[in-house]
Every structure is written in structure tokens, then in C-alpha cells.
């Protein structure tokens, strides 16, 4: 219901992307390679609907950009499985085993100490540190795994060459079909993005 409001609001905005245009035109002198084609949407549901139709049309190298997370979007572009949970699980298991056997080694092998007449391998006493190590290594695995899977940090990305893309952190939604998609064909894909309701369909150069 607030779509009209949003649209009129953004039209009165100055084009923050002007600076980006300059840098793009400077690049034009060398032959530009194509990263993909980008379309713009005014609201998340149009983006999700378009992404769904794009996936159904057989495109696979597609990506969506929005100011905030849209749960359906990743599903719509066919991004349903990520190996991050597995990485975190492995991290947790390694952390737990490492934490436990670190204490086992200290208490039983390296420096056996009689505490209150209890056996050296007093496993209940090892549980808190085992648990902490599980959480610690799992959390490290989550953060580092996320960075590696996202190929971050990434100082340069072609999508920032697209006009208006700065608005992706504000109130605009974008869909990109990458040029390395097997079904990609410049004119046809451009036409296709227009038919799924995208505005300002434009080339994105590398």
C-alpha cells in the first residue's frame, strides 16, 4: 500500500549514483566486459515474483539485492542449500573433542593431580570447558565459514557499476542475471527482464 509513497519519495531524491556513472564512463574507453544484466524493482514482492519467474525460465546464475533480508528471495533464486551449517557442526564437534581431550591430556597424561580423591579422568568436571570450547570453535567456524563462502572481504564488485545501485541500501530492489549463465543471451535476457516487470534494465560491466 505504501508503494506509491515510496516511489514518489525516491523520485525526489538526488541521484547518488552520478559519481558511479563517471567512473563507469571512464572505463568505457577500454572494451568493457559484461558481468550481467540488472533490473530494478520498487518493492520486495515484485522482486520475489520476478526472481521466481526468472528461475522458472531456466536461469540459474541469478542474484537479488535488497535493503533488508527477504526470506523468500533466497528460495526464489534457487539458493536453498548452504554448507555453512555443516561447517559450524564440524567446528563444534572439533571444539568439543579438542576441549575434552585437552583436559584429559592435562589431568591424566601430562600432570596427574589428585583432587579430592577423585579419579584423574573426572569427566563431569571436564564438561563445562568442553561445552565452552564447543561453542567457541563453532562460533569461529560460523564467522570464518561465512566469510569464505561469501568470498569476503571483497573490495570490488561489478554490481556497484550499475546505475541507482546505491539505492539497494535504501528502498530499491535489484535482480541480476549474470552473463556466465548458460541461458544468457544479451538481447533476449534484457527483453526477458522487461517482461517480468523490471524497471531501468541495464548492462552491468565488469
Amino acid at each position: 500500500m505504501s508503494d506509491e509513497k515510496r516511489e514518489s519519495f525516491s523520485e525526489t531524491e538526488p541521484h547518488e549514483a552520478d559519481e558511479l556513472h563517471l567512473s563507469v564512463s571512464r572505463r568505457h574507453r577500454t572494451a568493457p566486459a559484461l558481468y550481467g544484466i540488472m533490473g530494478e524493482f520498487n518493492n520486495p514482492s515484485d522482486l520475489v515474483a520476478a526472481a521466481r519467474r526468472t528461475y522458472e525460465a531456466g536461469y540459474r546464475r541469478i542474484n537479488g539485492y535488497s535493503p533488508y533480508p527477504i526470506e523468500e528471495l533466497s528460495e526464489a533464486i534457487g539458493f536453498t542449500r548452504t554448507s555453512l551449517p555443516l561447517i559450524v557442526l564440524i567446528g563444534g564437534i572439533l571444539g568439543g573433542l579438542g576441549g575434552f581431550f585437552m583436559q584429559y591430556w592435562m589431568e591424566v597424561v601430562a600432570y596427574p593431580l589428585n583432587v579430592g580423591g577423585k579419579p584423574y579422568n573426572s569427566w563431569p568436571a571436564f564438561i563445562p570447558i568442553t561445552f565452552e570450547c564447543t561453542v567457541l570453535v563453532a562460533a569461529f567456524a560460523a564467522v570464518l565459514g561465512m566469510l569464505v563462502l561469501n568470498k569476503l572481504p571483497q573490495p570490488y564488485h561489478p554490481v556497484f557499476n550499475a546505475p541507482n545501485f546505491a539505492l539497494a541500501t535504501r528502498d530499491r530492489f535489484f535482480l541480476v542475471i549474470e552473463a556466465n549463465d548458460p541461458r544468457f543471451s544479451h538481447d533476449e535476457t534484457k527483453q526477458f527482464l522487461n517482461t517480468v516487470g523490471a524497471k531501468n534494465v541495464s548492462d552491468v560491466e565488469i
Binding site: G116, P124, P128
Partner: peptide
């Protein structure tokens, strides 16, 4: 539940 066990088991 484990905290209760650990403390009582440690104190014995």
C-alpha cells in the same frame, strides 16, 4: 540439572 549434579558430585 547438570550444574546441580556437578556441584554436589564435586563437593561429595
Amino acid at each position: 540439572a547438570f550444574s546441580q549434579f556437578l556441584i554436589i558430585w564435586s563437593g561429595n
